[in-house]
């Protein structure tokens, strides 16, 4: 049997050796991107960047927390040049460790101040809006709350679902904390813990609403639009409700991009982030399957998605998300 195994293994090893030799032949300029955004999105964007600049983009994919913690563990030895996330807290983690190089002025000014930290260490490049999904046969639109804070009221018991363990929901809690204060947030979380069905992941929240398990669910807008695009399997029975009037439920969270200080390809890395937020990159984002909002005001998502300009998000400092206070409040409410 050993010989049989060897008979399979040896040719395979030779084959991979050959394969990796091939892939190592492209000795042109390249950058390494730690990508916690959806891999498919970057697979659409990166080739366009390469076409324009001749710089190859090599991706390491993972989740926000995996790659964030990996960067912290790597420290100065990191092979990464650029870090992209789905949400901002992982950016804050890496920023706090002092691992980012400041972005160029020209890059920063392309994005409105509300969607990047004051430090200038990283910038938002895509955004998603919080929504309340609802099952259209279980509940009518006029019964829906005007504020996300209302969901803590007793009448919503068993009628709302959400996913508290992801960074997404915590960003929403941060928004409530910023806009309503600590005591109100505490009461809100306790009410929600009492009322809500806890799921893991926004897609599962959507499924549960679609299946009629619960009437409503808190999630991000693009889950719904993408599912409609894929098959409608998980969203055909649902509709979206956008909160308005700077309600914390209208919170918009951002995907971040930053350049690692340890990178020895500063120029190429800076160029990539600049491309990502300038018109070309943002248009590529808008044209992709992702259905996330571009943050450069010159580019619009031209589809059935509710226009970014029509959103009425609250004002929240992106670098203040997921502070220790938010975690403490959520832990006290027994959500994490």
């Amino acid at each position: 049997m050993t010989s049989r195994l060897l008979a399979v293994a040896v040719p395979l090893l030779l084959l991979t050796g050959a394969l990796s030799a091939c892939s190592q032949e492209d000795d042109g300029p390249f950058i390494t991107v730690y990508n916690a955004q959806h891999e498919e999105l970057l697979k659409e964007l990166a080739p366009k960047f390469t076409d324009e600049t001749g710089i190859e983009v090599k991706l390491r994919n993972g989740s926000d927390f995996e790659l964030g913690n990996q960067l912290v563990a790597e420290g100065d030895a990191s092979p990464a040049d650029v870090f992209l996330t789905e949400n901002s807290p992982a950016m804050s983690l890496v920023e706090k460790e002092g691992l980012f190089a400041p972005l160029e002025e020209g890059t920063l000014e392309l994005i409105p101040q509300a969607y990047r930290p004051a430090s200038g260490d990283w910038t938002g490049f895509a955004a998603r809006s919080t929504v309340l999904m609802y099952n259209t046969s279980e509940i009518s639109e006029d019964e829906l709350p005007t504020s996300i804070v209302d969901l803590a009221e007793p009448k919503w018991k068993g009628r709302v679902s959400f996913s508290p363990t992801g960074a997404d929901f915590q960003a929403i809690v941060s928004a409530v904390l910023e806009t309503k204060g600590e005591a109100a947030t505490k009461a809100w979380l306790e009410g929600l813990a009492e009322n809500g069905e806890v799921y893991d992941g926004n897609n599962i929240v959507m499924q549960s609403v679609n299946d009629g398990e619960v009437e409503t669910g808190i999630a991000y807008h693009y889950y719904w639009y993408r599912d409609q695009q894929e098959s409608g399997e998980n969203s055909s029975e649902t509709a979206l409700h956008f909160f308005t009037n700077q309600d914390p439920g209208a919170f918009v969270s951002v995907s971040g991009a930053g350049v690692l200080e340890s990178s020895d390809k500063q120029e190429d890395a800076q160029e990539f982030v600049r491309w990502l937020v300038d018109e070309a990159g943002q248009q590529a984002l808008a044209d992709s399957y992702a259905l996330e909002y571009p943050l450069n005001p010159d580019v619009q998502l031209d589809s059935q998605v509710k226009p970014f300009s029509a959103l009425e998000p609250p004002v929240v400092d992106v670098s203040a998300l997921n502070g220790p206070k938010v975690i403490e409040l959520m832990q006290d409410a027994g959500l994490i």
Binding site: D64, G68, N322
Partner: peptide
């Protein structure tokens, strides 16, 4: 277990990495 909505110690460890970013 994440998909089956049954939190255990290990899912909590992931949550801890994920939410507090406190390794």
């Amino acid at each position: 277990l994440k998909m089956l909505r049954f939190p255990t110690f290990t899912t909590a460890i992931y949550d801890q990495f994920n939410t507090s970013f406190n390794g």
